[in-house]
Design a binder for these strands. Sequence first.
DNA 1: TATTGTTATACTCTATAACTATA
DNA 2: TATAGTTATAGAGTATAACAATA
Lengths: 150, 150
Amino acid sequence: MMRKLHHDDAVFDSVLELVILLNEDMEQGLGALGLTPSRAHLLWELRRRGPVAQQALAAALKITPRAVTGLVDALVASGLVTREPHPSDRRAALVTFTARGESLMVHMAHDHEAIAHALFGPMSKDELDAFAGALTDVTHRLRAHLATRG
Amino acid sequence: MMRKLHHDDAVFDSVLELVILLNEDMEQGLGALGLTPSRAHLLWELRRRGPVAQQALAAALKITPRAVTGLVDALVASGLVTREPHPSDRRAALVTFTARGESLMVHMAHDHEAIAHALFGPMSKDELDAFAGALTDVTHRLRAHLATRG
DNA sequence: TATTGTTATACTCTATAACTATA
DNA sequence: TATAGTTATAGAGTATAACAATA
């Protein structure tokens, strides 16, 4: 029992170490593209949803509309997105990729795939399936743990 | 080949999803203790090292000495640490836990163990070993990937 | 009235640069 | 000269609250 607990803890610490390294890697990669994590996160959501109102981005990113204003301001200044008029609601602005923004997203998607391949490509199909299964279980238990408090 | 790449990508996305949930969980737990992630990180390092100069904390946390000043100011204001005179170097201050700080760290360590147990306790020894082995491999490859750019 | 996005203000974390006190 | 830590200043990200324009 005592030995098992200790092992749990060691594996958890390994996960946290991986989290730290992943954050470092992402910050480096994004920095090389002239992006901050927050701005990249917004662009990633924008890519998934197509042109959307800032309202929707605020909900997706779980930040306030005010914070979205600041991020979009910065992305407009960088020439990656524009605010286009909403066809049916004159209060809203549709955040939309510029050509440069779209090609940057292609670049980001490439990087994403390359990292995934570098990390998981060497695993056998069985290893990968086992790992993915364990991840799913852990994620499920983490969601339950979060629900306990949130 | 195409199918394998897609699978790599899906597993990587699962890892990123877990990272996001872990961050949420930690921010919630720390917030309940009145701590920000940065302040908690500093306290965690302080616990590992015992009373140290801010210089050492700056190196451990990979932030500037100026940033450490701000974090320690906040922790002093919260009554969790004090700046004690260094026995042999009058320029330096030894950051030291108060009694309240120490008991908070006991609380944090408990939470840490509880989460580790909630996430990995249900795994069999074999599953856990396989998962830990895969984690080690992935972490190793990520380090190599980071070295490529850094 | 309710919603979209803004301006105004403030807090946290971080950085660089200049400075003080000590080594 | 070099080091430990600070003050001064700045930028990014976030929040709340009050407001404008529109629905």
